[in-house]
Amino acid sequence: MLEFRLVQGSLLKKVMEAIKDLVTDANFECSSTGFSLQAMDSSHVALVALLLRSEGFEHYRCDRNLSMGMNLNNMSKMLKCAGNDDIITIKADDGGDIVTFMFESPSQDKISDFEMKLMDISSEQLGIPESEYQSIVRMPAAEFQRICKDLSSIGDTVIISVTKEGVKFSTRGDIGSANIVCRQNTSVDKPEEATVIEMKEPVSLTFALRYMNSFTKATPLSNSVSLSMSSDLPLVVEYKIADMGYLRFYLAPKIED
């Protein structure tokens, strides 16, 4: 059987809100390492990878590796019933066809059980090679969200270019064009407000803004976001989940015909 108890239950609620519009059904993999998920969107353009390490849970028991197929919309409906301060426990039996979500209020005066049917999902697991990226940009997550939203009112695609001068986000559409340049800025009070550009080589790649905007639904998970880029590799947009792991989005680039 498995049983995970997560004191900061809101993390799980935020993860679901971040991925449920991109991925419909997914297998959650449970092992002694932690609770993870890898899934592609229906167009096979983007890939989501989640890891919540076992050490981040108050209690984590997983007797044997278990794959739980879930409809993310239904899971989100259930997790929406948990309060933001609730402790969430996930329970399942080996070979069973249901998962139980238990929500406890912080004062222990309200305890709810929600049972959800599991599904058989045949999904392809992709091997993601470890890569050295030509450029990595770390910036405030809210700033990145604002840029993606602003640019998508003008164009459908964004060109992200990293040079010594900084990172440039450009778009073009019927009404005109836009360029937003963010320079490295480490002279801020809090490290999460910094913009840090690690450039080994300049890089310029084109991506669909529709996907970028979808990824920014993960903004409540983390103060900062990192963008890892190399020519001819998918972009990695990573939100770290404090003390537990990460939520990563991989996005295939667009190429000129």
Partner: peptide
């Protein structure tokens, strides 16, 4: 115009 590439072109099925 641009062509959208697929993630499966970069990462292989395991």
């Amino acid at each position: 115009g641009d062509t959208q590439r697929s993630i499966t072109e970069f990462f292989r099925v395991t």
